[in-house]
Design a binder for these strands. Structure first.
Lengths: 156, 156
DNA sequence: ATTTAATCCTAGTGATTTAATAGGAATTAA
DNA sequence: TTAATTCCTATTAAATCACTAGGATTAAAT
């Protein structure tokens, strides 16, 4: 029941992009440096975000990435699902409509458990918008600015 | 973000035990047969449940397993945590008190996301008692009894 | 036009975890 | 004494994870 580094790094990368994006595109190398994530690996993560329509890539020199939508229209759920795939705790056709029907659905009791876990996870992450994290980040960075500079800059 | 077969099989096994236990202990071979799970593998799962005080083992001939407590005092959360370990989506000292403190806690924004996911999962599974599943199971089995016998008996 | 800075794309790899299988030791009712 | 059962540990094939590596493509800047 753990997220992989895809979800952890990827969410941090999108947040970094949202916080540090002005008018211009942000190069992935900058995000990788700030976040301490390998550039090559981050490329693979951002590819998933691009495929899901969360960011747009701009090729060529001075290129980079920008959010495809305003930060208050992107939920943490959108981001995590893009990176990790479906967030439900089991692969079960009763939870995911696309799947082929389960022949045991009639006598399956545990599916109620999986459905409730799945709904609680998705409701939670869909209720947090990227803009909420941007706001929180600005608050935290303002406080950090008042601290000594020998504070560790490493990130979870 | 998926449960492993430990959690899936293990929850089914405990439910099977709860449904099929009278006064006497239930042999693991019976549970394994009914649930279509390898006996050897199930042994390893039930060992975790025993260690967590959810079931008691009775050795020797005519031995088996019994619930260590009434089914309405055992939550699905207790069972899943025994089988899967901590259910939080990341290993983060801000979520798990035992861990060594995180040096980045002050500037970490995503920890709020992880905490909210963790709480929602744990609140959900702690709110479902084994007895709830037993009740549901009896209802489902009563209905299944009215159906033709050529229905699939395979389980999710 | 050339260079440079960047995204885009795919293949490979060591480490770890998963989902078992296997087999023997210990215990106890019959 | 036998048979049925839990208890315990080692091994393993397959999958997944978390990268690394390197080349192709694109477009701004010179």
């Amino acid at each position: 029941m753990k997220l992989t580094t895809r979800g952890r790094y990827g969410l941090r990368a999108v947040l970094d992009l949202a916080v540090n994006s002005g008018d211009e595109a942000v190069a992935l190398s900058q995000i990788a440096d700030r976040q301490g994530i390998s550039m090559n690996y981050l490329e693979q993560l951002i590819a998933k975000l691009k495929k899901s329509g969360i960011v747009n890539g701009i090729r060529g020199a001075q290129g980079g990435y920008i959010l495809a939508m305003p930060a208050d229209e992107i939920s943490v759920g959108d981001i995590l699902r893009a990176l990790e795939g479906d967030l439900s705790p089991v692969d079960c056709s009763e939870l995911n409509e696309g799947d082929t029907p389960c022949s045991s659905a009639d006598i399956c009791v545990t599916k109620y458990v999986w459905k409730r876990i799945s709904d609680s996870i998705n409701d939670t992450v869909d209720g947090i918008m990227l803009s909420d994290l941007v706001d929180e980040s600005k608050k935290v960075l303002a406080e950090a600015g008042n601290m000594q500079d020998d504070q560790p800059k490493q990130i979870c």
